[in-house]
Structures are given as structure tokens and as C-alpha cells.
Design a protein around this nucleic acid. Sequence first.
RNA 1: GGUCCCGUAGUUCAAUGGAUAGAACGGAAGUUUCCUAAACUUUAAAUGCAGGUUCGAUUCCUGCCGGGACUACCA
Length: 590
Amino acid sequence: MNIENEIRTTAVKGLQELYQIQYEGDKLTVNITPPEFSGDFSLVTFPLAKAAKKSPDAIANELGNYVVQHLPAVESFGVIKGFLNLTISKNYWIDFLKENYTKQEFGKHAASGKKVALEYCGPNTNKPLHLGHIRNMLLGYSLSNVLKFNGYDVTRVNIYNDRGIAICKSMVAWMQSGNGETPESSGTKGDHLVGKYYVEFDKILKREVEELTAKGMEKEKAEREAPVFKAAQELLLKWEAGDKATLDLWKQMNGWVYGGFEQTFKKIGVSFEKNYYESETYLLGKSLVLEGLEKGVFFKKEDGSIWVNLEDKGLDQKVLLRSDGTSVYLTQDLGTAQLRYDDFKMDQSIYVVANEQDYHFQVLKLTLEKLGKPYTNGIYHLSYGMVDLPSGKMKSREGTVVDADELLDEMFAMAEMHTRELGKVDEIDSYAQELYKIIGLGALKYFILKVDPKKRMLFDPNESIDFHGNTGPFIQYSFARINSVLRKAAATTFTISEEYVPNEEERKLLISLHQFPATVKEAGTTYSPSLIANYVYSVAKSFNKFYTDYSILNAENEQAKQFRLALSQLTANVLKSSLGLLGIEAPERM
RNA sequence: GGUCCCGUAGUUCAAUGGAUAGAACGGAAGUUUCCUAAACUUUAAAUGCAGGUUCGAUUCCUGCCGGGACUACCA
């Protein structure tokens, strides 16, 4: 139990004994005391004034006395304008350091037995991954790490939107103008090759629409009547009918895409334990819809289409099966949800999907609820904000997407450039290529993960991602520097004296490190890796200040040296763990 | 039209209803015989507008202004 919670618990007892009032511990406000006041933690007494029928200052004094008497870790208190500032005894901090500095995984929770399935990425198979997918993947992967750290049994899953009109468009264009091009024949990455023909489809379509409108046809009609569009629709029908040639080409082109995706996943450092494919779940979805129709929770219209009515929930009627019996997006998602539950029987199912699909997920949950599915309540949509460009939303058709592979390569090149500029290559040369990747990825991942997932964020391709200041490399550098010191110390255990009195900066750093477990816990319950990013930055900053102001290896005496080495060790562990939770590697040197 | 989200320094991001709204980049000025200067120090600079609730509002409520998303028998 951390000290903050002990303060809460003790204060709750105090309120009961002093004023006979019942108060819930988590409703008490306990913060780290701002630097301009003396004390370590502050309790706000204003909200208690009414119930206790006393002034905030009087409560603060009485409660302060109570806490000091009943909680040995608290040695003194001060009261300023209704704020009760508590000072933790130095022995508490010394013991805290002693107990934890050797733990590689300080703060990690034991397994709780709770199962979580976490879906992220969810690409279409007709074009390469872009910056939007990068935010998605980084969030999903990081969150999976955080939940594991907090004791959950997490399975990472991906869902491929591998069927439908989009992939048919790429197929048609490839048949018309591909001349048998393959990734091998042209040396093009598979997903990019298929994406090229998706763009090609649009070009052909545009040309044909122009020809038709020149002959006097209206634009909307021309878009439907264009031969290439009709060909794509026919291909979709053939696919649904199980036409062998169509299925073979579909499998081949999707195979190219999966090969390409696999490379990108590896490059960015994410992975999945299980893949789902909509082509394999839509039939199950259909059967669920029919099941609902039989139960009378869905209804059929005259044209044969099947609907769910969500007007009682403040939404609309939504189609579940088209009049021709084919399935829609929602149908597939119903099937996927069921299949996943059958596979894992998980307590919670998290979907990392952009907030443009908020409405879709409301509908999905309510529809599953109508079907009476027991796993409905465990579904959580982590709705993250989209990545915008200065010009607005990214649109693949308008060519304004930031390609994932290109961005990653740019980051690696930037990392190399910065490292060379600083003249650091010589010492590390054989390790250099690996290091550029570690640093480049560190910069990119931190840049994205430090932003609150729920908020949309801006990416300006013309402004390069920083390597200085509040960035991934800053934290990586702090870690590398600590490591350098620890290497020179050439020891892994240190003798911490109970007599040692930590200075202000050491104390501040200790408090900061002490917050690590609580921070990770909160990041998990709020699904916000950004909390960890902001936290680890403050730790690194705190350490760097300490590092410049005090010498570790040449400390004024042996006591100080041993204490500082242990403090450095714990800092290194926390930095490494935090970065690891964000999916960022911590380099031993840079 | 309806539903939902967002407006914080020049820019990109922070701030469970709590003390003087924090950082970073960019701007200005400094720190290297000493553990890695991708660091550290100093400095100027912000809550869209108007009300309300509260001891206290960037945070909650209402209205307005501005931006965005969703509202397909697309996925």
C-alpha cells in the first residue's frame, strides 16, 4: 500500500473519531505538495468544513495532529489556508529505496486471473498502413503492456477487413492494367502494390466518368454506370458466390498485403497473438441476425432486409442484412464479437478504434444486448482521436495520407543524422544501425503516446519530430547516462545508511519514483498510456536536475555515494519500465 | 436538421473542482579543466465570448462564436 492511500485511510479514521463523520477515502483530495510549500503530500480540507461544522484551518490542525500520532511515516504537518501539508519521515523514504531499488519490475502486479482480449490495428487489405494506424497500433500495444503489468491476462488480436468492395476495386484495376505485376517482379512491398492498384482504380473510374458525362450523362449516374465500377461490383458478387478464379486472385492479393503488413508490424515493434478475418466471421454474423429475427428482437421489412430498431435507445433503425441477403459491416462485427468470446471467454473485450466509429460501437453494443449476449457489458470501445494534418483529415483518395513505412524510415534517418551531428557514432559503431532505430522509434512513439488518446492530435509532415525537450530521446538519453554511471560503479547492490539525510532534490526524485505503481494503475483504469509518458518525463527531468547538481561517483562521502547509486538504480528501473510500457526501448548507451 | 467531440502562450501538448494554469519547441540571455551538453539555468508569452453553480471553475451547467466527427442496404 502506498503512502498516499495510508494517509487517506488514516484521515478517514480521524474524521470518524474527531467529528463522527463518514467519509470515503477516495473522495479525499490528496496531492503532492507544490514545491513552494514545505511538505510532501497535501490534503484539502475545504470539502470537510460543512460536515465537521468547523473551519478548514481548524480541521487541518486537528486532523494533522491525528495523522502524525497515528501514522508513523508522517513526521510533521503544516497548515496553510485550509491545506494540510504533511511531511513524510526520511526513514520512510530510505526504507522505500532500500526495499525497491533492486527490483527490475518494481510496481508490477501479480496475475489477477482476469482475461482481456484487446483488438487493435484493424486494417483494410486494399492499401498500406498510414499514420492513423500508427496511432492505433502504438495505443493498442502500449495499453496491452500496461494491462499485463497490472495483472491482466491480455491477448492481442487483429481484425482484417479482408472482403468487400474495396479489395475488389484493387483486383479489377490489377486485372485491367497490372500485366501480371507481383511484389517479386517489381520489387514493391505487397501492401503498397495492392494500394497502387486501388489508386489506379480511382483513376480509371474518373476517366470513364468523364467520358460518360461528356456524352451528356449526369455525374452520379455515370459513377454507377462506369464499366470499371460495374466490374468491381460483379467481382464482389462472384466472390460471394464462391467463384474459384475470383477467390484465387483475392487470396493472392491479400497474401501480398499480409506479407507487407508483417514487415511493418515488425519494424514498428507490435505483434498479435491471434488474427481474425471478416471473410471468416460474416457468416456467423448472419446466423446471429437470423437468430435475433427468430427471437423477435429484430424485424424484417417488406423488401426482405432485416433491421434492428434502436429508437428506444435514442438511436435509429439500423440495417443488419441487405434485401439481397448480403451482410453489412455491423453483421461482421457481430460475428467477430461472438467468435472471439467463444475463443477466449474473456472478462473484457477492448476495441481500439478511432472516434469516427463511436456511433457504430454504440449500435454494436446495443444490438448484442438485444440478442442477450452475456459478454456485452465487457465490451469497451477505446475511442481515440484521429490524427489530423494541418490541411485537415487524411484522405487516401486525395493522396494526403502519411504512409507508415515512409514515416518510419524518415525517423530512422533523422535519428542517424542527429547522432552523427553529435559525434557519437565512433564509440558505438557496430551498434549504430540498431541504435538509430531505437531512437527513431522512441521519438515517434513518445510523440504520439504523450497525447491523451481521446483527443485528436495534429501532425505536420513539414515539421520534423523533435529529439530534444519533452521527447522520447530525452528520456532514453537520461537512461543511457544513468547506465554509464552504474557501469562505472561496477556494483549492483549498495549499502544504504539509515543515517543518511537525503537533500531536497533526492527527496523529490524519491517521491516521484514512489508514484510509479499508482501511475501505471491509473493508466490502466483510464486506458491512457499518455499518463505514463507524462510521468516518465517528470522523472527524467527530476533526475537530470539532480545529476547536474550533485556528483554520484565523486559524492562528498561514502554514505552519499551509496545512497545515490541506489537512487540511480531505481530511477533507471523506473525509466526502463515506463518506456517499456510505451513500447519504447531503453538503450544502454547513446 | 439531429447526435456527439473539441477551443489553454507564436506552435505542439499538460493540469482527479484546489494553492501563483505547468512543459516542450521557437524567441532572448547564460552554463563544459568535473559521472555522456540529445543536458542544465534565467527570461518574455495563454484558459474564444457572456452568464450561472461553488469557499474555490481551464475543469461542472446554460447561451453565443469558431473548428471537427458521425448521422449509407460503404467497410
